[in-house]
Design a protein around this nucleic acid. Sequence first.
DNA 1: TGGGGGTGTAAGCGTGTGCTTACTTTGCCC
DNA 2: GGGCAAAGTAAGCACACGCTTACACCCCCA
Lengths: 197, 197
Amino acid sequence: MVDDEVGRRRDAAATKASLLSAARELFNERGFDHTTVRDIAGLAGVNQALLFRYFGSKEALFRVAMTSQGHQLLAETPPEQLVGRMLTRMLSPDAASVKDNPIYALLRSTGNEHTAAVFRDDLGEPYRRALAALTDADDARVRADLVLAWLLGIGLLRSVLDEDHFAGVDPAQVTAHVLRAVATLLERVDQRPPPDA
Amino acid sequence: MVDDEVGRRRDAAATKASLLSAARELFNERGFDHTTVRDIAGLAGVNQALLFRYFGSKEALFRVAMTSQGHQLLAETPPEQLVGRMLTRMLSPDAASVKDNPIYALLRSTGNEHTAAVFRDDLGEPYRRALAALTDADDARVRADLVLAWLLGIGLLRSVLDEDHFAGVDPAQVTAHVLRAVATLLERVDQRPPPDA
DNA sequence: TGGGGGTGTAAGCGTGTGCTTACTTTGCCC
DNA sequence: GGGCAAAGTAAGCACACGCTTACACCCCCA
């Protein structure tokens, strides 16, 4: 699927990459439980036994697929702009930016204890810390959790409950609403519209 | 389980009620996909074939279990106090108020298209309308969606991502934060602490 | 050139699941 | 008491799933 050229078969690295890409796409679309290893291998154009050879189990593949691309956004974004950038990325009408945003895999995998733990430990915690640093209030942790909850809830409405939520609406307008309200919780949040998309 | 007295067996109404109660408890705890009909029948103390005789399918049972108790809160609460009451109910440390709050079943069932549709149509929509009525802004719908998203996100953090979120924190303090920020979106929200628990 | 390890494949094992079927038991009504 | 529909039960069907196994192939290096 990813690698259609006939030459260069028997390439373990390409096979792994193909499996990872297919896994990310399907986990984000359907969540962990409703994605089968047969689906992943099929989309990757690979025999499903290779999935287990290279990753060990479906759960292990999930962990690798979700965390490997993990923390770029967090690393490359100034904390003040974090909320704004997460919003524009989540609200983008571009399907591709949805497909590789692991937050949607989380939101569709809430029923599974193991996958929830992956996100809690590998993604939630760093974001909580980054957001908490945006205020001097002594209940910074609570305020950061509330902001994180809001971002997750917006993604939930957008992706799970109703595909059309916020659809006809200017993302910038939604972002402005949220940033204004969030500023009452975290005083150092940058309320200007985030640069680029 | 519900009906331990030995007299009065062969009571269809009691059997149905017992199945409904067990279903609510397990769906809220584990979500739709991770709850089996054998678990439900077992907790209800009933043969699983009766589940299908009385409700037709697991999905139909889910729909009935979630919507039958459905809209009391919405019906009996003045709109201005809706956000406050939902928060106190969600943040209550009381396990029972979690057990019969269908929002947690939704949050643990996001991977399943059918269950998501139940909530979108049967619960989400009325709440969206009620919240939208709390402002005169011409983008009332967007504002209402954002508030609903926040409430859902808070429930998500509380129940799915981390059992201890907001645990050591005074629920009233969290509620105050949210109500203050929400007031920038919906001008008619009552910011006073909600009456009773 | 000919093993041997890395790569790919087909088939299937074991289990859990939603749901069905064929049957037994109970209690009510004439 | 006898008949009968409603209530309850045991067993299992059919299938999808995660994962394993036994085998075929191909390239590389001694």
